[in-house]
Amino acid sequence: MPEAHLSLQIIPMTEKERLYPIVDKVIDYIKKSGVRYIVGPMETTMEGELDLLFDIAKEAHRICLEEGAWRVGAVIKTDVLPEGIRFEDKIGKYKQV
């Protein structure tokens, strides 16, 4: 399957002081996965094979629970084209990635 985009806003329900450390662990996992990604103020957008991106989103939920969240919400958005899509196609004229 061609390259796709998946944006993940992960929302661990936890004590206020634990929120960002948990999100940081999720972002670290995304980084280690090897996919291209952009961290934004509200979500992280990843680029790669769609099944892999969904696997990463699923693991993000597990990480949050493992780190003590009592509930995990998420907003997931995808963009898939038959020929594939790259960050440069969308934002290349605005930002270098």
Rank of each mutant, 00 (worst) to 15 (best):
M1P: 13
E3P: 10
A4N: 06
S7Y: 01
L8N: 01
L8F: 03
L8I: 03
Q9N: 10
I11P: 00
P12Q: 05
T14V: 07
E15Q: 14
E15D: 13
E15P: 05
K16Q: 15
K16I: 09
R18T: 11
L19K: 13
V23F: 01
V23I: 07
V23S: 03
D24K: 09
K25R: 13
V26P: 00
I27R: 12
D28I: 13
Y29E: 05
I30W: 04
K31M: 05
S33L: 08
V35D: 01
V35S: 02
V35K: 02
R36N: 09
I38S: 04
P41V: 11
P41Q: 12
P41E: 11
E43I: 03
T44M: 02
T44R: 01
T45Q: 01
M46D: 01
G48E: 01
G48S: 03
G48Y: 02
E49C: 09
E49Q: 12
E49H: 10
L50Y: 03
L50R: 04
L52C: 05
L53Y: 02
L53V: 05
L53F: 03
D55W: 13
D55F: 15
I56P: 00
K58L: 13
A60W: 14
A60S: 15
R62W: 12
I63A: 07
C64R: 06
L65V: 07
E66C: 06
E66G: 06
E67L: 10
E67Y: 13
G68A: 08
W70G: 13
W70I: 12
R71E: 12
V72A: 13
G73L: 05
V75S: 10
I76D: 00
K77G: 04
L81P: 06
L81G: 04
P82G: 04
E83W: 07
E83C: 07
G84H: 08
I85N: 07
R86M: 06
D89W: 09
D89Q: 10
D89A: 06
I91E: 03
I91V: 06
G92E: 11
K95M: 15
Q96L: 14
